[in-house]
């Protein structure tokens, strides 16, 4: 019996020590990788720089905007897998932060899901102690595992290791101030497959989004730049309800300090060679897009760009 107790006790000690080590290791990897979602949320909620032009949005924000080409102060907060809920949540925080410069928000026209609910919480592991994250994000959908040191990072080592490696020596991705640029180009067979699997997308804006959007657009004097990015030609062809999207853009423009740059419906000169898949630009396309965007931003806010 004593032997069994020693055995179980030894296993408990090994487990606790390994969990602690896993926590420390993950923290180190996260804090040394600007591409990691946890780094981005930690930076936005707990350690925002005094002067910064944040770029907010989903994986498209992450892949399309090359911060070093836009401005020395720009940082890409795009997070893979996040939707418009997370984007607006980040926007609210960016507005609260000290910086005075403009905020760039990537707008996915199909991103306003029918429900105004969060989808990603695992990406807030290092920002969980921030009052706004606790109150507004975890408060609604508590996930204890995300709070508890030791188990909060369980299962994320590989993801963080990949981010850390991409930050240093990229093989398939290159990191630039938070942006993750895809070093992929597709051949004709791959494009045929991608195009065959595109489902028709539409613009949807449920009434539950009105209040949070209104709150973000009216409670700041900082210029908000909403950008609708390009997609692959076939995707654009399949998109329905363009008039509704134009109405929405008009609605956004009506808010003071809000600007909309529509490179989705107004610019059609992006080809498949610029894309890694149907909705994500590759590095070549991202550089082209960022340069084009910078020119347009310069016309709107010459002092910042």
């Amino acid at each position: 019996m004593r032997q069994l107790l020693y055995f179980v006790l030894s296993l408990c000690i090994i487990t606790v020590s390994a969990l602690a080590l896993n926590d420390v290791l993950n923290q180190q990897l996260v804090l040394n990788s600007t591409a990691s979602p946890s780094y981005k949320t930690h930076r936005l909620f707990l350690a925002p720089p005094e002067e910064e032009i944040p770029i907010l949005g989903s994986s498209r924000a992450q892949a399309h905007y090359v911060p070093s080409l836009l401005s020395p102060n720009a940082f890409n907060y795009g997070i893979d897998g996040s939707g418009m809920y997370e984007t607006l949540f980040h926007l609210k925080q960016a507005i609260r932060n000290q910086a005075k410069g403009p905020i760039i928000i990537n707008l996915d026209p199909w991103g306003f899901h029918s429900e105004y609910t969060p989808r990603l919480m695992a990406d807030y592991l290092l920002a969980a102690q921030a009052p706004t994250v606790q109150k507004e994000l975890f408060g609604r959908h508590t996930l204890p595992a995300n709070y508890w040191p030791g188990i909060r990072f369980y299962g994320t080592l590989r993801k963080n290791l990949a981010s850390w490696m991409n930050n240093r020596k990229a093989i398939t991705k290159r990191v630039d101030n938070g942006a993750v640029l895809l070093l992929t180009s597709r051949n004709a067979t791959e494009w045929q497959y991608i195009n065959e699997h595109i489902h028709a997308q539409s613009f949807s804006f449920a009434p539950s989004w009105e209040a949070p959007l209104n709150e973000c657009c009216t409670q700041t004097t900082r210029p908000l730049i909403w950008v609708v990015g390009p997609t692959a030609p076939k995707w654009r062809e399949q998109f329905t309800e363009l008039p509704q999207l134009h109405n929405f853009i008009k609605h956004l423009k009506s808010y003071p300090n809000n600007h909309v740059i529509d490179l989705y419906t107004q610019t059609i000169d992006y080809t498949e060679a610029d894309f890694a898949d149907a909705t994500h630009l590759n590095e070549k396309g991202a550089i082209r897009f960022t340069k084009q965007l910078k020119d347009l931003l310069h016309q709107i806010l010459p002092q910042d760009f």
């Binding site: 030894s10 090994i14 390994a18």
Partner: peptide, 16 residues
């Protein structure tokens, strides 16, 4: 036995 269990606990924690 302890070595065996420890090896696989570490694998589960770090790479599970």
């Amino acid at each position: 036995q302890l070595l065996f269990a420890a090896l696989f606990i570490l694998a589960i924690i770090f790479f599970g």
